[in-house]
């Protein structure tokens, strides 16, 4: 998995690519929790390059969201591939996370 953190016009974006699994999710957790501790909001996660996610990856985002909710932060997912969306839906998390098709949609929400 590759993690790129970018700031563009004041927007903080984590762009992910590759597989998010038990091997890679600790690194993602570390990066995510640094941003949560800094109380970043909104925080955008670009899923367009993600090819796979397992329960450890999902748990990482649930933990991040819970941390952000403590300070009223917004976590916004962008461009989730269909197969990964299906996993979020099965886990009933499509109603928990804010999900958008494009960065524009996410920014304008």
């Amino acid at each position: 998995m590759k993690i790129e953190i970018a700031e563009n016009k004041g927007l903080k974006v984590i762009a992910l690519s590759g597989d998010i699994d038990m091997h890679s999710s600790p690194e993602l957790r570390k990066e995510l929790m640094v941003l949560v501790q800094k109380k970043v909001s909104p925080l955008y996660v670009d899923f367009r390059g993600v090819s796979y996610i397992d329960s450890s990856g999902i748990a990482t985002f649930v933990e991040g969201l819970k941390g952000m909710m403590a300070y009223g932060g917004k976590l916004k997912f962008v461009g989730i591939p269909e197969r990964i969306m299906e996993i979020f839906c099965f886990a009933k998390l499509d109603k928990v996370f804010e999900m958008y098709g494009t960065m524009n949609d996410a920014c304008n929400s």
Partner: peptide
């Protein structure tokens, strides 16, 4: 319980389904 949103506890659901 899938309605109880917290980290963990999903893997078994993915296997059983």
């Amino acid at each position: 319980n899938l309605d109880d949103v917290r980290p963990g506890g999903l893997g078994v659901h993915f296997i059983r389904r």
